[in-house]
């Protein structure tokens, strides 16, 4: 015990952590449950795989196009669906943490609020890439063809979209103030219109005019068109740029809204 300790030194504190370290710590924490139990990844794949396996053959039967062409059109849609379902419901994990109290614990820890959100959103990339690859590989034996550069760029756009949509899901979790039913209500209400209006299941071109207008402002439609072009190997298509812009916009909007929500979190 010395008598030269200054008051501030008396309250020994751990050394400050950087923003990047904080984000990395959050990503590591959020990834652990998935790494410990990788089969949980299958859960959000069930629905999309059913669409692939049950809706796909119907699609083949109703159009006169060959199976390969139908798959080439349909599988990118399934990929986007995986991203929508997977990242769209990820906010429920945060909601659970909020209700249990563990979120409060992280709010008292010396982490920046934005790191808490950005880390969670970035984590979405890992399961999404794994799931995306599973879907693509499942489709290959049935005649789906992949261009490797197209796959890489396609997954990058999908990852961007997943980060943004995940961030939006977290924003929703923060906004519903513990009302779980509200989270799922909004989730369902938003997800299906977005899904159908993206032209994922059936082309929008044949729909009524108002639908085409709605589809034109649905950013997910642009992501989907980009994926279709990329898997067809058409990297120079303007649709790719459109998808990249749409995914980036979703990411920025998601992170901005989410970070603001996290800063206000109590």
């Amino acid at each position: 015990m010395t008598d030269t300790i200054s008051p501030s030194e008396k309250f020994i504190a751990p050394k400050p952590t950087s923003f990047v370290t904080d984000v990395a710590s959050v990503v590591a924490r959020e990834l652990r449950p998935t790494l410990r139990d990788p089969f949980s990844l299958i859960f959000s794949l069930v629905q999309p795989l059913f669409f692939l396996g049950l809706f796909g053959p119907l699609l083949v039967a109703t159009t006169d196009a060959p199976v390969e062409a139908t798959l080439q059109w349909f599988v990118p849609g399934i990929l986007v669906m995986v991203a929508l379902f997977g990242t769209g419901s990820t906010g429920s994990n945060l909601l659970d943490d909020i209700m249990v109290g563990s979120h409060e614990r992280t709010l008292v820890a010396p982490l920046s609020r934005s790191a808490l959100l950005i880390g969670r959103a970035l984590k979405e990339v890992v399961p999404l890439m794994a799931q995306g690859l599973i879907v693509v590989l499942v489709a290959v034996p049935f005649g789906f063809t992949i261009s490797i550069p197209g796959l890489i760029v396609g997954l990058i756009i999908l990852a961007l979209f997943g980060i943004g949509f995940g961030a939006l899901s977290y924003s929703l979790a923060l906004a519903v103030e513990g009302r779980e039913w509200m989270f799922w209500l909004v989730h369902q209400t938003v997800l299906f219109p977005l899904l159908i209006l993206s032209g994922m299941l059936l082309p929008i071109d044949d729909g009524p005019g108002w639908m085409k207008v709605a589809a034109a402002i649905n950013p997910i439609g642009y992501v989907l068109e980009a994926e279709r072009a990329l898997f067809a190997g058409d990297l120079a298509s303007p649709a790719v740029l459109g998808g990249l812009v749409a995914a980036s916009v979703i990411t920025i909007v998601g992170l901005v809204i989410g970070t603001r929500g996290m800063r206000r979190a109590r």
């Binding site: 370290t21 710590s25 590591a28 924490r29 652990r32 449950p33 249990v100 109290g101 614990r105 992280t106």
Partner: peptide, 26 residues
């Protein structure tokens, strides 16, 4: 701070949650 409610997340393992907490505090 040990709050009145739970501090640990349901989906985490005990040791993992402690590891994260250590990282959070640098």
């Amino acid at each position: 701070y040990i709050g009145q409610r739970s501090s640990a997340s349901n989906s985490q393992r005990v040791r993992d949650e402690l590891r994260s907490q250590g990282a959070f505090y640098g």
